[in-house]
């Protein structure tokens, strides 16, 4: 059973992706385009979780965010960085308040940046020791930029005012 970090806790993953064995009680995460088409046709059923690829645009999703409780942002390779912008836009511009998950070629070393951009759950590389990784959320007690990690209640101090007044 896959394990993830959600809100600073290591928990069993409760979702399945296309191509994976369905499991009892597990939600299925649909590719964004597929879910959007279904939702627009009023046929999303109970599906409320989507998978966002790096090149996916947010605009088509923006009007439908109320129907979602989980957005999984994919980081298919080391160094892929588009998901950071997608997360920040979802949280700030589009006001998305549901679960926002980072998934892919990620280790604990990216958790600080991911959390700052508004992710609150993390499906890391299988090699990662998730319990040890939890400490990485507290790598930095200060930051120069505004962050969207209030959800995680890390008590980190942001100091954008030093630059931006």
């Amino acid at each position: 059973m896959r394990r993830i970090i959600r809100r600073l806790e290591v928990v069993e993953d409760d979702v399945r992706y296309c191509g994976e064995e369905p499991a009892a009680g597990a939600r299925t995460v649909l590719p964004a385009a597929q879910w959007i088409a279904a939702a627009q046709a009023g046929q999303a059923g109970g599906a409320d979780a989507v998978l966002l690829a790096p090149a996916d645009r947010l605009e088509p999703l923006a009007a439908l965010l109320g129907g979602l409780s989980l957005i999984v942002v994919e980081f298919p390779s080391i160094g892929e960085g588009r998901g950071f912008s997608q997360a920040r836009l979802l949280r700030q511009r589009h006001g998305y308040t549901g679960e926002l998950r980072a998934r892919g070629a990620l280790r604990r070393d990216q958790l600080f940046f991911l959390a700052r951009c508004g992710f609150d759950s993390f499906d890391l590389d299988p090699a990662e020791d998730l319990h040890a990784a939890l400490a990485a959320f507290r790598s930095f007690s200060v930051a120069y930029q505004d962050g969207s990690d209030a959800l995680l209640q890390l008590g980190r101090r942001s100091h954008p005012t030093r630059a931006s007044g």
Binding site: G81, F112, F113, A143, Q145, G147, S164
Partner: peptide
């Protein structure tokens, strides 16, 4: 420099 240091969104650019 401060704004760019450990910028959460722009630390994994192309």
């Amino acid at each position: 420099r401060q704004w760019a240091t450990l910028h959460p969104e722009f630390s994994y650019l192309p």
